[in-house]
Simulated scan of single mutants.
Amino acid sequence: MTHLILHIGHPKTGTTALQTVLSTNADRLLEAGVLYPTKAKPSFHNHALAKPALTGCDDHVIRGRYGLEGDELRRLSERYWDSVKAETKQHSHDTLILSWEWLWDVDAARSEYFRKRLLEVCDHITAVGYLRDPARFFLSMMNQRIRMFRGILLFQEDYYRSVIDAYRENGFETSINVFESAHFANGDIVTDFCTKYLRPDLPALERGGNAERGNESISNEAMVILQEVARAHSTSSPDASPDARDSRRSKTVRIVYEADRALGGNLRPSLKPEIEAAQVARSTDLIWLRDEAGIQFANVDYDLVGTTGHPDLASLHSVEDFSPIDPDRLAALRAMTERKIARVYGRGAPVYSLVRRWFGSTTP
Rank of each mutant, 00 (worst) to 15 (best):
T2N: 12
H3M: 07
L4R: 04
L6K: 07
I8D: 02
G9W: 02
H10L: 10
P11Y: 09
K12I: 08
T24K: 09
A26D: 10
D27T: 13
L30V: 12
T38S: 13
K39D: 06
A40Y: 00
S43V: 07
F44R: 00
F44A: 08
H45C: 03
H47F: 06
H47E: 04
L49P: 00
C57A: 10
V61G: 00
R63S: 12
R63V: 15
R63T: 15
Y66R: 07
R74D: 02
R75V: 12
V84C: 04
A86K: 09
S92P: 01
H93W: 07
H93A: 12
W102I: 07
V106A: 04
S111K: 04
E112F: 01
F114G: 04
K116S: 11
D123L: 04
I125L: 06
G129F: 02
R132A: 05
R132W: 05
A135K: 02
Q144H: 14
R145W: 01
R145V: 01
M148L: 10
R150D: 13
G151L: 10
L153E: 14
L154Q: 10
D158T: 13
R168I: 07
N170T: 13
F172H: 04
E173L: 10
V178Y: 02
F184L: 01
G187K: 08
D192R: 03
T195L: 08
L198S: 09
R199Q: 11
P200E: 03
G208K: 13
N210E: 15
N215A: 14
S217W: 06
S219R: 02
R231V: 06
A232D: 04
D239T: 12
S241C: 02
A244Y: 00
D246R: 06
D246Q: 07
R248P: 01
R249Q: 12
E258L: 08
D260G: 05
D260V: 09
L267G: 14
R268Q: 13
I275G: 02
A281V: 06
D285G: 08
L286V: 11
I287G: 01
A293H: 10
Q296K: 14
V300C: 03
D303L: 12
G306V: 06
G306I: 01
P311A: 08
P327G: 07
R329M: 13
T337E: 02
R339M: 09
K340L: 14
A342F: 02
V344E: 10
V355D: 05
W358M: 15
F359D: 11
F359V: 15
F359E: 11
T362R: 15
